[in-house]
Design a protein around this nucleic acid. Structure first.
Length: 441
DNA sequence: GAGTATGATTGCTA
DNA sequence: TAGCAATCATACTC
């Protein structure tokens, strides 16, 4: 039996937290004979093997007895030697891992959004950027800005609460495992490296949970951002007055409903179009863009379904006609909306009183109307009067029976005949007067 | 909740 | 680049 010298030799390995054990081991083997030791080791091993079958109290008592056993230090020493030999196998796992690039991306994003790191006003930078994208000013916007910040702040709060919980749980669990290992180190050799490794395993597990938290937080921020920035979600109908003004212009320029840039801006101002209704990416055209949209939609929808717009056209035509008559009768020189594209237009666009329209004066179709300074150029007055006349049967001879009203300016191809710019109006396959609907709706 | 109205966007053309 | 046509997405109405 060549074990004796090894049993006697202590390497002092695996005494973590228990420096006294090494000394105990060195002292514990003196004065024993070979046969007796064999018996003792057999007993100890037997007791260890059966300890799990016992009750907690019994096991504790047995453990205490084992710890006090005279052969325990020798056995412990053997275990230390074995441990020393096998420790090489776990060395590879000890190496530092490079930081996870995905985790870094998530961290960076959370920092940029103001969710992680120091409080930066609840993501005000991001909110400001988003606000800039939608125009940057206006009461609506500030409300949305506040809303965005509140929601971001909520996300931040949840994130930090959860993170704190995870960290606390991680610390508790680590402490628990370390205590367990220290306790176990009384009966089996456990190196500090082994404890470190165990701790790092625990940390890795918890950091993967944290990564999930970071990922879902990022997703929440992205959803919030996209909702805040998505202009389509923020569509607001123009108010009634704005629609009146735009319709007024449209029907009074039916022969050429293509307002110039200046006219668009003037209309936008008159309509008090809010920032939330301006969603172009190009700041230079912020205001007139939605007017362009409105006219674009109007032209197409009017052309597609003239029948549907008949009544509306009559109403506005009548209003404008009355206005023109009134203006003419009073000999006033009303400034009219400039329509550079339309022949005969003159003067600058001025709808200064259009906000007070439609009061007191009875129009041809019974609507009330204020004979104010409605901006209408000569061409548009002619258009309107023709329209009214056509409605009252004045042009009946020249109109096909199916065409209650031949819209001024729309040619047989569906385009506005005297409009120089919309040269691409070629697609309608049915003539004006046929009823379409906006197919998407 | 379904149907409709309407402002905005996208892709294309001239 | 403006405008058309189709489409989307939301608001509004019943």
């Amino acid at each position: 039996m060549d074990e004796q010298p090894r049993l006697m030799h202590s390497h002092g390995v695996g005494m973590a937290g228990h420096p006294g054990l090494a000394q105990h081991m060195q002292d514990g083997t003196a004065g024993t004979d070979g046969e007796g030791r064999k018996q003792d080791i057999g007993d100890i091993l037997q007791q260890i093997m059966t300890i799990t079958d016992q009750s907690l109290d019994e096991a504790q008592a047995r453990k205490h007895a084992l710890n006090c056993h005279r052969m325990k230090p020798a056995l412990f020493n053997v275990l230390c030697e074995i441990k020393e030999k096998t420790v090489l196998s776990i060395r590879g796992a000890q190496e530092e891992e490079p930081p996870d690039p995905q985790l870094m991306r998530l961290d960076n994003m959370l920092l940029a959004e103001g969710v992680a790191g120091p409080e930066k006003g609840g993501g005000s930078a991001a909110a400001a950027a988003a606000a800039a994208a939608t125009g940057g000013i206006g009461a609506d916007n500030s409300v949305e800005h506040t809303d965005y910040r509140a929601k971001l702040s909520q996300i931040r709060q949840i994130y930090h609460t959860e993170l704190e919980k995870y960290e606390q749980a991680c610390n508790e669990f680590t402490t628990h495992v370390m205590n367990l290992l220290r306790e176990q180190s009384r009966t089996r050799p456990i190196s500090p490296k082994e404890i470190e490794r165990m701790v790092s395993i625990i940390h890795r597990k918890f950091s993967s949970i944290q990564m999930q938290l970071k990922q879902s937080t990022c997703e929440a921020v992205m959803i919030l951002r996209s909702r805040f920035l998505d202009a389509r979600r923020k569509r607001r109908n123009f108010n009634k007055q704005a629609t009146e003004i735009l319709n007024e212009y449209f029907y009074s320029h039916l022969s050429n409903p293509y307002p110039s840039e200046e006219a668009k801006e003037e209309l936008a101002k008159k309509c008090s179009i809010t920032v939330s209704q301006v969603t172009t990416k190009e700041p230079s055209n912020l205001i007139s863009k939605n007017v362009s949209n409105w006219f674009g939609n109007k032209r197409i929808r009017y052309k597609k379904n003239i029948g549907k717009f008949q009544e509306e056209a009559n109403m506005y035509a009548a209003r404008t006609a009355v206005s023109a008559t009134s203006v003419s009768a009073h000999g006033s020189q009303a400034n009219s909306p400039s329509t550079p594209n339309s022949a005969g237009s003159a003067g600058s666009f001025n709808m200064s009183n259009s906000g007070d329209l439609f009061m007191s004066v009875q129009s041809l179709n019974g609507d009330s109307y204020q004979g104010g300074q409605v901006g209408a150029n000569i061409q548009s007055q002619v258009d309107t009067l023709r329209h009214v006349i056509s409605q009252t049967g004045g042009y009946s001879d020249s109109l096909a029976a199916s065409q209650m009203y031949s819209p001024q300016g729309i040619n047989t191809n569906g385009g506005w005949q005297d409009a120089p710019t919309p040269s691409s109006v070629t697609s309608p396959t049915e003539g004006p007067g046929s009823v379409h609907s906006d197919t998407s709706n």
